[in-house]
Amino acid sequence: MPSLMSRLSSAILCAGFALLIALAPSPSGAVLPDEMLADPAMEARARVISKDIRCLVCQNQSIDDSDADLARDLRILIRERLNEGDTNDQVQDYLVARYGEYVLLNPPMRAGTLLLWGAPAILVLLGSIAVFFWFRGLGRKTAAAGPTLSAEEEARLSSLISPRNGKDQS
């Protein structure tokens, strides 16, 4: 059994880690200080937009996370558009017009992407149907397996559970 001292020290260690995690600054992606806008509200909007824009060189990273040159250029472009008074949607449309919908990490819901969006629901539905039939089959099997004791076994069983029999044995 661990001593009180070692328990105490591990508890302190855990608390220390928790505090570290809580106090750690949120990850700031690949954005460099010289790209940032002076206005924190505008900068926050730029960050929100860049989190949803795919870096076309690295492809599964957002431009907010990516160190690629192109990602940096696109981050600067987004900030320029914001400074010129574009709304978030206008900035996004601007990028989609040049790089296609592929540039969005969240594909928009359209006829062409319906299967993509619907697939999880369809899979859950298919799974539920499978589970339903599985359990129904299980119920049937136990019902069918019920009356298969032979007459001999039946007699033995009834003698075993009869109260008189129990008394005799004790």
Binding site: L56, V57, L70, D73, L74, L77, R98, G100
Partner: peptide, 12 residues
């Protein structure tokens, strides 16, 4: 500056 190439949709 690499600004015009963004208008052309260049990525490589």
């Amino acid at each position: 500056q690499g600004k015009a190439v963004l208008d052309w949709g260049v990525y490589g």
